[in-house]
């Protein structure tokens, strides 16, 4: 299986990548890890005339803490996120999520930016980035702008990124004290993608009641989303078996669940409720 013919360009900097994007417009696609784009090109679901390889841009894979935010470059490989000491200490939910993606080989090549921009409905990262209230930094001909995760994912494989822009960084506030996070997923056994994946962040106050609750859900609907009904139901409550189950029962509220050969809409909705409960339970345990 070969991809269709294209002209290959290697960008050494963000500026160069943007200028090539500007020059070739709709005919061009950026290539990061290639773990989604190349399979699509082999199936001729994508047939760009120009491929702009950003995979070698120096420094765009950095992971560090700066100005009170944890910053992850667009090119950070899934494996680097999963094994980063900084992230395992300060943002373990994200490292845990990255370790759940695909397999060893895919994690060695695939990038955070590529996953978010590709926006596969079964992608893992979006759930964690939503629950952690990540900020997505994109750069275009007019400079940089920052989008909240909730503003970024619009629809099936559709994001708020404009054609002339590229994603350069995702940044997060580290979790505060008495706050825990967890990511749990139901894997599609062949590909590893999430049939449903849920990321939860729970913060407790001195008295042990839920002060902050954030839940990101992937796989259920065309676009990943924050489960606001779950968050509202749990906030202010003392987390116990009953309040967690009650909150989790709202995980699929108001959502058009996807249906395909792997799982019906009803089954996906049930998976979302069950996995939301599990993610909340784990997050609470870690917050204590």
């Amino acid at each position: 299986m070969y991809p269709g013919a294209f002209e290959y360009h290697r960008a050494d900097s963000v500026a160069q990548a943007l200028s090539l994007l500007g020059r070739f417009g709709e005919q061009a696609k950026l290539l990061a890890g290639g773990q989604s784009l190349l399979p699509m090109m082999k199936l001729r679901l994508a047939e760009p005339r120009h491929l702009i390889d950003i995979g070698g841009i120096a420094g765009l894979d950095a992971i560090n803490e700066q100005g009170g935010r944890i910053r992850i470059g667009a090119l950070a490989r899934h494996d680097a996120v999963a094994s980063s000491d900084l992230l395992r200490r300060r943002l373990p939910l994200l490292a845990e999520c990255a370790a759940e993606i695909g397999d060893l080989q895919v994690r060695n090549m695939g990038t955070l930016g590529g996953s978010l921009v590709h926006a596969d409905p079964g992608a893992d990262y979006p759930a964690a980035v939503l629950a952690l209230e990540g900020e997505i930094v994109v750069e275009g001909p007019g400079g940089r702008r920052t989008l909240k995760a909730e503003q970024f994912f619009l629809d099936l494989m559709t994001t708020a990124l404009k054609p002339a822009e590229m994603l350069v960084e995702v940044n997060f506030a580290p979790l505060s004290a008495r706050t825990g996070g967890a990511y749990v997923k139901h894997r599609q056994p062949a590909s590893g993608f999430a049939l449903v994946g849920v990321a939860a962040v729970v913060g407790l106050n001195q008295g042990g009641a839920v002060e902050r609750c954030r839940v990101g859900v992937t796989g259920l609907a065309a676009a990943p989303f924050r489960a606001l009904a779950v968050e509202q139901a749990l906030t202010g409550k003392t987390p116990d078996a009953r309040s967690l189950a009650d909150a989790a029962s709202h995980a699929a509220d108001g959502k058009d669940a996807l249906s395909d050969i792997h799982a019906s809409a009803d089954f996906r909705a049930e998976l979302a409720r069950v996995h939301t409960q599990r993610a909340l339970e784990k997050a609470v345990e870690r917050a204590r």
Partner: peptide, 13 residues
Amino acid sequence: GRAVKSCTLLAVQ
């Protein structure tokens, strides 16, 4: 040093 699937990588990469 890292395992990759060579069917999902271009030679130019």
